[in-house]
């Protein structure tokens, strides 16, 4: 990994999401708020990890950026272009996606070659610049080799490939039009551990070689911590904590982040026993989940919660080390380092 390019908000090719609110209709004029005022930035060439549990709204953010979610308010811009309300044909091709499900991601009735060539043809159609059959195929073969598959893959069908191979193909497809930002929506979550490692390595390698930015969405803090420089922790549609990935993982400032880190078991029975005892000592019995509104969404499960937390919604505030946290009592979090990475 090269040194991190931290570019300011003025950077032309960066994704900015500002105060995003997404409400899903529940029928009969009722809605469910999936994302509640989230702001984030993916700087060019860098990776932002979005982590959260089910119902945290992390995939909804991806959908909103891709124009697939009903955005209530807020803004999403890429460079100087607004992305909200664009018709499906006018979306910037610089933003592409890799989804979680490697099975539904590829049309089973088309060859891999067809699937990869299709965006090139659409592009020729749009721009009038013809690559020609040979040119398109050369590009397909190049991209297949880039993701670690033989060129002969092009003539075969998705059913002949395993989940991990399909995910490589999905990545190749996302790269066909030279995107600047790739959104990975739980892109490694459906894969076995050994395959997950292969795909993470591939993504890191591609980012290094091509300089693409990644918006990496996952429920797995360990994976996010590995691949992302910046991380954003979501809970019930709200940002709990955001900032430098390594710092947040080692010293969470928000009780929720801390619970997340402490809950993930580590591969060492002795160390895991200690962590478990620590976690159990500091986790209160969860109370009734309060309705969102003026309270902190985590108050009912929080060891530090006071009456203030259920009265006043904590706003994101920046701490001394540059991270932002939405907690009234962030300063009460122990400042010790949680060793999650093995130190060998």
């Amino acid at each position: 990994m090269t040194a991190q390019h931290v570019k300011g908000p003025g950077d032309a090719a960066a994704l900015h999401v500002q105060d995003l609110v997404v409400d899903y209709p529940l029928g009969r004029r009722r809605t469910r708020r999936a994302v509640d005022g989230v702001s984030l930035t993916v700087p060019a060439g860098s990776t932002l990890g979005v982590v959260g549990e089910s119902g945290s709204g992390k995939s909804t953010i991806a959908k909103a950026v891709l124009g697939m979610a009903p955005v209530t308010s807020g803004s999403i811009t890429y460079g100087d272009r607004g992305l909200l309300g664009l018709p499906s044909g006018r979306r910037p091709q610089e933003i592409q996606v890799v989804f979680q499900d490697p099975y539904s991601s590829l049309n089973p009735t088309k060859t891999i070659g067809y699937t990869l060539e299709e965006p090139l043809r659409a592009q020729e159609h749009r721009t009038g610049v013809a690559l020609g059959r040979a040119g398109r195929q050369a590009r397909v073969h190049e991209m297949l080799e880039r993701v670690g598959l033989p060129a002969s893959t092009a003539g075969r069908y998705p059913s002949q490939f395993s989940g991990g191979q399909r995910q490589r193909i999905s990545i190749a497809r996302a790269l066909m039009l030279d995107p600047e930002l790739v959104i990975c929506d739980e892109a490694v979550s459906a894969l076995d551990l050994s395959i997950q490692a292969q795909i993470l390595n591939l993504l890191l390698e591609l980012q290094h070689d091509l300089g693409v930015s990644l918006l990496f969405i996952s429920h797995d803090l360990g994976v996010v911590d590995h691949i992302a420089q910046q991380v954003l922790v979501l809970y019930r549609g709200r940002v709990m904590e955001t900032g430098d990935s390594a710092a947040i993982h080692a010293r969470p400032a928000h009780p929720y982040t801390r619970a997340l880190v402490m809950s993930a078991p580590v591969q060492d029975p002795g160390r895991q026993r200690e962590r478990r005892e620590r976690r159990r000592a500091e986790t209160p019995v969860a109370g009734m989940r309060a309705p969102l509104g003026d309270s902190c969404p985590f108050a009912h499960r929080c060891a530090l919660a006071t009456e203030l937390c259920s009265r006043e919604r904590p706003q994101l505030r920046t701490l001394a080390d540059g991270r932002a946290v939405a907690c009234h009592h962030a300063e009460l979090e122990p400042a010790e380092t949680l060793l999650t990475k093995e130190t060998r």
Binding site: M1, S162, G164, Q165, L193, S194, I195, Q196, A197, Q198, L200, N201, L204, E205, G222, V223, D225, H226, I227, Q229, S245, A246, V266, Q267, T340, K341, E342, R344
Partner: peptide, 18 residues
């Protein structure tokens, strides 16, 4: 192959093949 054992941002010791 767990990211837990790899250095942040560095290749993980993945098992080739499937």
């Amino acid at each position: 192959t767990s990211p837990e054992h790899a250095e942040r941002g560095r290749p993980i010791a993945a098992i080739a093949g499937q």
